[in-house]
C-alpha cells in the first residue's frame, strides 16, 4: 500500500494479489464448463451401474484422468470461492486467517484423498484397507 499507484490505460493496477486471483477464478471457471458437462455424462453412465459398473468405468484411463483433473480444478475453484465468502462476511483478521487455514487444509485433504482413491481404482488395486497394513 505504500507503493505509488500504477495505471494501465487509466485503470489502476491491483496493489496486491487481486488481479491474479481474478484471473485464476475466470480460468478455472472456463475449464470447468466442459468438465461439468463431461461430469453430467459420467453421472449418467455410472447411475445404477453398481460396483462392477463403477470399476469398469474407472479402468478407462480417460475417465480416471478426467475425473482427477475435474476434482483438482473443482477443489481449487472451491477454495477460491470459499475465500471470497469468508472475506465478505468475516471481518476479524484472526478469525479470518484461522477459517481460511481450516478451509485450505480441508480442501487439501479432499484433493489428496480423492486422487489417492482414483489412482487405486484406475490401477485396479485390491479393495482398501489392503496395502495400508491392515
Amino acid at each position: 500500500m505504500s507503493k505509488p499507484a500504477r495505471y494501465v490505460k487509466h485503470v489502476k493496477v491491483s496493489e496486491r494479489e487481486g488481479a491474479g486471483e481474478w484471473k485464476a477464478e475466470r480460468l478455472s471457471s472456463l475449464v470447468l464448463i466442459p468438465l461439468a458437462l463431461w461430469g453430467l455424462w459420467s453421472a449418467w453412465a455410472l447411475s445404477g451401474a453398481g460396483y462392477d459398473g463403477a470399476l469398469g468405468w474407472f479402468r478407462s484411463p480417460i475417465n480416471a484422468t478426467l475425473l482427477a483433473i475435474t476434482l483438482l480444478i473443482s477443489v481449487w475453484h472451491m477454495n477460491m470461492g470459499l475465500k471470497v465468502i469468508v472475506d465478505d462476511y468475516i471481518h476479524k483478521p484472526s478469525s479470518r486467517t484461522a477459517l481460511l487455514g481450516l478451509i485450505g487444509a480441508l480442501c487439501l485433504l479432499l484433493a489428496a484423498a480423492g486422487v489417492f482413491f482414483i489412482v487405486r481404482l484406475a490401477l485396479g488395486s485390491a479393495p482398501l484397507p489392503a496395502g495400508l497394513g491392515a
Binding site: Y51, A54, A113, G114, F117, R120, P127, L128
Partner: peptide, 12 residues
C-alpha cells in the same frame, strides 16, 4: 463425491 470415491476404493 469424495465419499463415493472412498466407497468404491474400499470394495464391494
Amino acid at each position: 463425491i469424495g465419499a463415493w470415491l472412498a466407497a468404491a476404493a474400499f470394495g464391494p
